[in-house]
């Protein structure tokens, strides 16, 4: 019960804070302007709730695509039963992760133009690695006596991966998705630099005009969304004691 309150109670607090921030933006903003002594209390063209919605859409599309591709890639690599391919994929992914997301965005603008596409590509690429890596390490962590039992019982290679290894890898896989999602919720703010919507819009505008209130107005919902996503994914991870 205490655990239940802890997980869902916190989620509820973060969620309600987000709703309050959106519903009462103008009053919060006026208050902040008063405290900081700088900034403009004027309302932006786009309401904050629209920006949040755009943000969620960007992150969801990119992360969902990464989940599908990442899991598919992980399973395909596993089914190939080739250790070289596996280490190649992981090393290649780790290499990709070292390229700064700003660089990915900048490089994809000439190809994809301004707008949502460059940030979608960057978020997608960034989310794939933790998902593939966790899918593979989850599949690999299945105890050898379990895989041997599965094989000896007469599972085909494909049945073994889907009915035994994948369900056992699921908690690790969810952890990878959680990492990817939390990274993406904050990284999506960079989209505003290339004309995408989302909560990056007030943040970037705030930085350009040296307006801390504007930066706060955009970043607090980002933090709250990341916290909610983290909590929700943690609580749906199946709890299983390791034998």
């Amino acid at each position: 019960m205490a655990k239940y309150i802890k997980t869902w109670g916190l989620t509820l607090i973060y969620g309600l804070s987000l709703v309050w921030w959106l519903a009462d933006t103008s009053r919060i903003k006026a208050q902040l302007v008063e405290w900081f002594g700088i900034g403009s209390p004027l309302i932006e063209r786009t309401p904050l709730s629209t920006l949040v919605w755009q943000h969620i859409t960007l992150v969801s599309i990119a992360t969902l695509a990464a989940i599908l591709v990442g899991i598919g890639l992980g399973l395909a690599v596993r089914l190939s039963r080739s250790e070289e391919l596996e280490s190649l994929v992981i090393r290649f992914g780790a290499l990709g992760e070292t390229i700064p997301s700003a660089a990915v965005i900048a490089l994809s603008v000439p190809l994809l133009g301004y707008g949502n596409e460059p940030i979608l590509l960057a978020l997608f690429l960034y989310a794939i690695l933790p998902i593939v890596r966790n899918t593979l390490s989850g599949l690999n962590s299945v105890a050898p006596d379990i895989t041997e039992a599965a094989k000896g019982m007469g599972f085909t290679e494909i049945q073994q991966v889907f009915k035994v290894e994948f369900p056992l890898a699921f908690p690790t896989l969810i952890a990878g998705i959680r990492t990817a999602l939390v990274i993406n919720i904050s990284a999506a703010t960079l989209g505003a630099t290339v004309g995408a919507g989302g909560l990056g819009v007030p943040i970037i505008a705030g930085i350009r005009t040296s307006d801390p209130v504007l930066v706060l107005i955009g970043s607090v919902p980002v933090i709250l969304m990341a916290l909610v996503a983290d909590r929700v994914l943690r609580s749906i991870t199946p709890q299983r004691s390791i034998p």
Binding site: D145, I146, E148, A149, G152, V164, L168
Partner: peptide, 12 residues
């Protein structure tokens, strides 16, 4: 029928 050391029951 196949029975191994450590049983290898499927934990899930």
């Amino acid at each position: 029928g196949y029975c191994i050391q450590g049983v290898g029951l499927f934990p899930h």
